[in-house]
Every structure is written in C-alpha cells, then in structure tokens.
Write a protein that binds this DNA or RNA. Structure first.
Lengths: 184, 184
DNA sequence: CGTTAATTCGAGGCAACCCTCGACTTACGC
DNA sequence: GCGTAAGTCGAGGGTTGCCTCGAATTAACG
C-alpha cells in the first residue's frame, strides 16, 4: 500500500533542500545533537517549517546518513580486495576511523546505538558484515588474536569516537597502538 | 591573611554533611553532571540551602574528590613497589581503570579537563608523576614500545572512560588488547 | 526566655531546547 | 486574475536545569 504523495510545491521543495543542506553541514561540524533551531536558522527558514518537513531529528538522520554510509561499503569492498588478510583488516580500521574523524555526525551515528532509521540500520549491518568477513579471514590466516570478535570492534569504535571528539589529531596513533595488540 | 571562619551552627553542619553524603552517592552513581536539584532532594534539603553551602558544582568536587583521589597514590605506590617493570606498569593501568569503573564521578573527573579545584589538580599531578616514573622504568627496561609517553596514557584514559560509560563490563578486555600493543 | 544573627526555604526569574497551532502568505491550476 | 490548498511563520507553552532573594525559622548566647 504505497501512499503516493503528490510532488512538493516549488517553495516547499526549495526549503526542504535548504534544510537538508544546513543539517548536513551542522551535523558534520557539531555532531548529531545540534539544536534544531540552529538548523532552521542556517537554512533561513522558520522553526515551524523545519518541523513541517522533518518532524523528528531521526527524519533528518534518515535522509542524510544513508549516502554518507555508502562510503562504508566502498572501504569494505576495498578491504576485501586486499590480498594480505592482516593488511585488509588493519586498512579497514584506518579507513573507517578516518571517515568518522571527518564528520562528527557520522562519528555519533556509528558510536551510539540510537540511529533507528531502517536505511541507517541496514547500512550499519552491511558494514558489520564486511568487518565480520575481514575478521574471519584474519583469524583463519592466524594473524589476528584468536579470541577477537565483532563485539570488540564495536567497543573500539565507541572508544575511538571519544578520542576523536576529545582530540581529533590523536586517533591514528591510538589506533596504531591498539592494532599492535591485535596481532596474533 | 587567613580568614578564620567561625564554626558552623549545628543545623548548618548537619545539612552540610547530608549534602556531601548525597553528592558523593549521586556523583558515583550518575556521574559529575547529576542535577544539583537531585543532590538537594536526596539530602532532604532545599535547593537554596545547597547553594548556601556549595555555591558551585566545583565546590562539591573540591570537597569530595581529593579523598577519592588518594586511592591514586595507593595504587601508584603499589605499582612502584613491583619489581618487574612491565608488570608494574600494566598493573597500574588495571588498578587505575578498576577505580574508574567503580565510580562514575571519578571516571568523569579523570577523563575530562574540567576539574579546577587545586586539590584535585594536584592529586592528578601526583598520579601523573607516578605514571611517568612507571613509564620511564618500563622504557629503560625495553619492555614498553619506545615512543610511548604520558600523553598516550591521557588519551587511553579518556577512551576507557567512554568504554566504561557505554559498557562497564568490557573495559578489562579492551585494556588487555591495548596493553598487548604496548609491549616493545 | 528573649534577642538576634545565622540558616533555611522555595517560589520564581532566566536560559536552552523542544514542539504546536492558528493566522498569514503564496504557488499553481483553472 | 482568482480561489484554494499548500506552505510559512513565529509567538508561545512545556520541560529541565541553573541560580537568587526576601520572608520565615531557629540555634545559641546571655
């Protein structure tokens, strides 16, 4: 039962776009918790209009992050193409956290449990799938500590998210130390 | 020029104690950001009375945490008494984070830059002093990766603080992996 | 006891953020 | 052009937390 909503009026479409652009910028700059009023202000639109188009913060997240999360697939594929199982896994971590470091909103999305939009959830699942394969490969090759699991990666992600928030310049070093501890 | 303040009236002393007890509990349970109103409520005292005794949140912190931080000295001494340089450093980390995991307030104090009370600051400095010695020893013995520094420990502390907040049961495992990466 | 200074109380003002609703405005089809 | 549905606006009500201040209370001392 698809409810075919009629096309937006011209001004409405314009405002929707401005809101989306503003939200994209502000999420990236300030993180997921930026006040909705700020988004409205940057979009030069009233708060009422914001709520008309995006009744909840989640609606913004659902519109904005699926594309962002597509990058996860890219780095996943890239890592799967790498021959050396250790290099594949370690490179994946580097790329993943580099991504997070570039976008505070993405950092939040990946580090919290919150994001409920199905598109976002499925993107995360795909990411976890890639990571799972990389872990299995590395385990099979005996280059990763034998008890490592995807749960540890989730923990690491939240930890690194915090490092990125506190001191954006240090995550790479932190990761390199942690990664040493990962080798079998 | 020491301003000798006269002793508190009996009821005032009682209320002060109740406030301190309530704050100690709530900081430990909920972290440093617990609303001051909650502290007043648990102490069964009005919000006005709370502000009379502790005009700022920092005043609570300054009264409560110096004793808590004394534990830092204890584990520092304990580690310095340990013969094996690696065991000394690794044990210190274990003890430190076990402490943090037991008290959300302490976790916050150690992981944020905020705490400005001189007593708190100096306790942190003493802790850093111990840690510095442990690091130097381990470096001299060649058991710690050669480029490790106290800055890395600060980063680790913030990262683990986050792990403790998110999933209190996992910090030990996380640390054990990281610590592997630390060996020379 | 009575005095009085110290203490307590909590209503209420301020600020940030959330969200709603009805009056006004405007795009668009005719 | 005009009528109308669609869209916009922003004042304002709700919440949570911070903090203040004057009226009411009370400990403590003679």
């Amino acid at each position: 039962m698809v409810t075919a909503s009629r096309p937006l009026r011209a001004d409405a479409a314009r405002n929707r776009d401005k809101l989306l652009a503003a939200a994209t910028e502000l999420f990236a700059e300030r993180g997921l918790d930026v006040p909705l009023e700020h988004i409205a202000r940057r979009a030069e639109v009233s708060i009422g209009t914001l709520y008309k188009h995006f009744p909840t913060r989640e609606d913004f997240v659902a519109q904005i992050f699926p594309q962002r999360l597509a990058a996860l697939d890219v780095i996943g594929e890239k890592a799967l193409a790498e021959q050396d199982p250790w290099q594949a896994f370690a490179g994946y971590l580097e790329d993943l956290y580099a991504l997070q470091a570039e976008d505070r909103g993405l950092n939040d999305v990946l580090a919290r449990d919150l994001p409920n939009a199905p598109e976002v959830v499925s993107a995360c699942h795909r990411g976890a799938g890639h990571a799972g394969i990389l872990i299995d490969r590395a385990l099979a090759a005996g280059v990763l500590r034998a008890d490592y699991s995807i749960t540890d990666l989730a923990t690491l992600t939240r930890a690194i998210a915090q490092v990125i928030r506190d001191s954006p310049g240090e995550w790479r070093r932190f990761l390199s130390i942690y990664a040493e501890g990962l080798r079998a």
